[in-house]
Nucleic acid binder design. Sequence first.
DNA 1: AGAATTGTCAACCATTTGGTTTAGAATTTT
DNA 2: AAAATTCTAAACCAAATGGTTGACAATTCT
Lengths: 122, 122
Amino acid sequence: MVKDQSPSLDRVFHALAHPARRIMLRRLAAGEWNLSDLAAPLRMSFPAASKHVRVLERARLVRRRVVGRTHLCRIAAKPLADANGWLEGYRQLWEGAFQRLDALLDELKTNEKHGGQTKHGS
Amino acid sequence: MVKDQSPSLDRVFHALAHPARRIMLRRLAAGEWNLSDLAAPLRMSFPAASKHVRVLERARLVRRRVVGRTHLCRIAAKPLADANGWLEGYRQLWEGAFQRLDALLDELKTNEKHGGQTKHGS
DNA sequence: AGAATTGTCAACCATTTGGTTTAGAATTTT
DNA sequence: AAAATTCTAAACCAAATGGTTGACAATTCT
């Protein structure tokens, strides 16, 4: 069972809700990068990018290692697995039969509501 | 390929980032419910719950059908599939070998930094 | 020693979020 | 017709988000 009430899920989904942070994660999937690397492609100031990294850290999606004056960041995939685990609970909803059943029910209930009368065109 | 730059992904992940909304989706996975049904178990005012439903609608995770004075809500799973699709790009990171390689690299680089000294307690 | 690089911090700002309360519209029930 | 139910709208509020700039600390390069 997967719990809905979960501050860590809150933080993970929130972290994933901003494109800049998703772009950062994408780069980190390929390896380690420091803040300058991560900030460079984003059209925002350095401090702004730094804040995004901290959001990723709070969600435990990124870990930081200080080497000299550079802060090297590494992705930590576990929270992504948790998010995926939550989504898994809905997989059957978007795969196969449910979709069609959904559409069918929709049609039936719409007819029920209109009582067979339609206001097509006239 | 899955794009990181995507306002609709923004909205979906944002919608999933609040426990009240995840709880609502959980109920909607079982069928149709009106706003009162959805609001009842949540410890917040009715208008607050209503706003959460609107967030779910903006993310296209919920569709609403007005029947008399009640607003019936239904889950629409497609955006969940999209979110899942985005996460899929990271699956290998949390499954299997990558995790162990990650830990190994971590250890190696920590040693590098500490110059072979560890603080293992024993 | 001096300059450049990397990153933090603090202050500030506008907007969004998440909640409240009060009022009212629409529909159903009695 | 009157009352109850379901839901929206508007006004308001505190806190969080996402961004900026300017100053500064630490480290590395020359």
